[in-house]
Design a protein around this nucleic acid. Structure first.
Lengths: 345, 345
DNA sequence: CAATTTTTGGCAACCGGTTGACAAGGATGG
DNA sequence: CCATCCTTGTCAACCGGTTGCCAAAAATTG
C-alpha cells in the first residue's frame, strides 16, 4: 500500500482481483446459491435480513460489480438512455445534453449520445441503432417525420424535445410568453415594422415561432414579415442581412441566437448601429449570447430544464408510470440585453 | 403491403416481426446450425461462400440485428467507447465531444458520455462505472491524479487528452508554437509587460501554458507575471480584472478563452479600450470567441482533432496495434483577431 | 402439538450470442 | 486407389446474471 516502488509492471493487464467477481464467487464465499445472491442484490426483501447481510458483506469484500450485459441479456434493462441531437456543434443542444446527463446520472442512468448531422436519414439510422441498446430514447429537435418517431415510440419509450407529436410524450418550450414579451417590448420602443428570420424548413419549431411572432405583432399592431435563412448558423445570419435591410424592418426577431449574432455582425460591419438603428432579438439564450457587443437580447428557452424534464418523464415511464397526456410545456422569457431598444433616428 | 389502412392500432407495442430475430431464427430459415450463422456473420471466410450467401439473405429477410448484449457477454467487446469530460458546460469540450462522436460513429462505435463536474472523486467514480461497459475510455483534461489513471489504464485501454502521463497514450496540443507566435506578435506590437492569468491548480495544462509563456517572454525580452484566477470561467475573468490592471501589464494571455472574455468585458466596462490600451489573448479558440467586440485573439487548440486522434488511437489499440510511445502532439496556432494589437498611448 | 400458511433458499432453464473441439466431406498427392 | 490434409458445418459448453417453480424451514394458528 505504502510503497509501490518495487512493483514489476504497473501497466500490465490486471489479472488477480481485477477481473471482477461474479455472483458465483459471492455465492461460494457466502455459502449460498447464486440465485440467492442475485435476489439479495436486486430484489429487496426477497431474502432474509440475515442472509442479505452475509451476501452484502461478501460482495463488498470481493468488490463486486454487476456485469451490465449479463443483466441486460435476460431482462432487457440496460440502465441507459439515448439522446439524439441534430448537431453536436450547435450550442442549443449543449444545455439539453447537460441537463439530460446530470439528471440521468443522478438516477443511475448512463447517457449515450448520438448525432444526426441534421439529416433525417442519419437520424433514423442512429435512432434504430441506439434503440436496441438503451431503455429509452430522447429526441431533441428531431428532423425525421412524425411517423418514424411514432414507430420508434412503439418499440420503446421515446420522449421528444422541441416538437409536439400526437401520442408521444413531448417537452416543448411555450414560446408565446417570451415572444409576446419581446414584441411588446419592441412596440413600446416605437418599432412598427418587424421581420422574422426563419430557420430550417424541417424544424417544427421555426413554424411555431413564426406563428407566435405573427400573432403577437398583430396584437401590438405591428407589421411582421417573414424572411428565410439558408441555414440556422452565424453564417446564415450574415447572409440574410441584406434582405433584412431591404425589408425596411427596424426590429428583427430570429429563429435562433446564432442567426441573430451573424446578422448583427454583418449589419455592424456595414455601419449600422445596434440598437440605435435596428433592434435584434434572438431565440434560446445560448452560451455566448452575452459575449457580443451589445449583448444579445433573446427569448430564453430553458434548454437545460427541457433535458431534465425529458429524462424525468422517460424514467417515470420506464418505472411504469403513465406519460403526461399533453405536451409538457416549459416557460420562455425575454432576456433584455443591449441589442434591442429605442430607435434613434 | 400496399394498403395498411385497416390496421388495428399502429401505436401498439410491436409483437410480430418487431421483437428482433435471433441467429436461431436465421439458422432455422437457412437450414443450418446457429453457430454457422454466428460465424457467417462475424468471421469472414470461415464458412463457404454459398452458405454465407444463404445466411445473409435469411438475415436480411428477417431484418436481423445482433443483440449487442448477447455479443458482449462472452466476448467483452461492446463497440462502445466512453468519454469523460470535466464539465459539459465548458465549450472547450464541445469540439472534443464532437470529434470523438464523429470519428467513433464512422467506425461503428457508439460514444458514451459522462461528466465529472470538475471533481476528482466524481471523475474516478464515473470512470470506474463506465469502464465496465465500454471497450475503452477517453479522459479529456482529467482531474484525477496520475495513479488513478494508470490504474484504469491497466484494466482497459485509456487515452488521455490535454495531459501527459508516462505510460498512457496521450494527445496533447503542443502549446509552444502558438504561444511563441502570440508572444512574438505582442512584442512586435511594442508590448513589454506581459501577464498570464492561470487556470485551476488541478489542471496540468495551466502549468504547461505558463511555462510556455514564460519561456517565450524571456526569449522576446518581455517581462511576464503570473496571476491566479478563482475559476476558469467568464466570471473568473471578471474577478481577475483588477489584479491585471494593478500589475501594469499591457498585454494579457489567459489560461483559456472564457477568462479572456470575462476579463475583456470587465475591462471595457471600466472604460479601457481593447486593444488600444491593453491587448488580450485567449486560449483554445472556443465556440463564441469571435462573438465579442473586438473578436478575441486566441491560441487555437485543435480540440476537434484531439477528439478524433484520441478515438483513432483507442480503436487502433483495440485492434491490437501498439499505442504511440510518446504523447501525440497536435499543433496550436495563433488566431489573430481584434483583441490584440499595437498600444496607443 | 399437529396442521396450515408464509418465508426463504435451491434447482434449472433461459437470454442470444461465441468458440474450441471434432467429424464428415472434398481435394490433393503418392 | 488409398492415405493425408484441408475445408466446412455441427455439437456443446460457456459468458453472468434472472426468474418460475418447488421444497424445506420457519412462523402462525387452531
Amino acid at each position: 500500500m505504502t510503497s509501490p516502488g518495487a512493483a514489476t509492471a504497473p501497466t500490465k493487464r490486471g489479472r488477480g482481483e481485477k477481473s471482477s467477481a461474479t455472483i458465483y464467487d459471492i455465492a461460494k464465499l457466502a455459502g449460498v446459491n447464486p440465485s440467492t445472491v442475485s435476489r439479495a442484490l436486486s430484489k429487496p426483501g426477497r431474502v432474509s435480513a440475515k442472509t442479505q447481510k452475509i451476501i452484502e458483506d461478501a460482495a463488498e469484500q470481493l468488490n463486486y460489480q454487476v456485469n451490465p450485459f449479463a443483466r441486460a441479456l435476460p431482462t432487457g434493462r440496460t440502465q441507459t438512455i439515448g439522446l439524439i441531437v441534430a448537431d453536436i456543434t450547435n450550442p442549443t443542444f449543449f444545455d439539453i445534453i447537460r441537463g439530460a446527463e446530470t439528471t440521468g446520472s443522478a438516477r443511475d442512468y448512463t447517457l449515450v449520445l448520438a448525432e444526426s448531422a441534421e439529416s433525417p436519414e442519419t437520424e433514423v439510422t442512429a435512432a434504430r441503432r441506439l434503440l436496441s441498446t438503451v431503455d429509452g430514447l430522447i429526441l431533441a429537435s428531431p428532423r425525421m417525420d412524425d411517423d418514424h418517431i411514432r414507430a420508434l415510440s412503439a418499440d420503446k419509450p421515446v420522449v421528444v424535445i422541441n416538437r409536439e407529436i400526437e401520442g408521444v410524450p413531448c417537452v416543448v418550450p411555450d414560446v408565446n410568453k417570451g415572444i409576446s414579451e419581446a414584441v411588446r417590448s419592441l412596440a413600446a420602443n416605437g418599432h412598427q415594422k418587424l421581420a422574422y428570420v426563419a430557420g430550417p424548413a424541417q424544424s417544427w419549431m421555426t413554424g411555431r415561432r413564426w406563428e407566435g411572432v405573427k400573432a403577437a405583432a398583430e396584437w401590438s399592431k405591428l407589421s411582421a414579415a417573414r424572411l428565410e435563412s439558408s441555414k440556422p448558423t452565424v453564417d446564415g445570419g450574415r447572409q440574410v442581412a441584406r434582405e433584412v435591410l431591404e425589408s425596411g424592418a427596424t426590429a428583427v426577431i430570429t429563429y435562433n441566437d446564432l442567426l441573430a449574432i451573424g446578422l448583427m455582425q454583418e449589419l455592424q460591419a456595414g455601419g449600422m448601429r445596434v440598437p440605435d438603428q435596428i433592434s435584434i432579438v434572438g431565440f434560446d439564450d445560448i452560451f455566448g449570447a452575452d459575449f457580443t457587443t451589445p449583448a444579445l437580447t433573446t427569448v430564453r428557452s430553458p434548454l437545460g430544464e427541457c433535458g431534465t424534464r425529458a429524462v424525468t418523464i422517460l424514467l417515470d415511464v420506464l418505472q411504469g408510470h403513465d406519460a403526461p397526456e399533453e405536451a409538457v410545456s416549459v416557460e420562455t422569457e425575454l432576456v433584455v440585453r443591449g441589442s434591442s431598444g429605442r430607435l434613434l433616428t
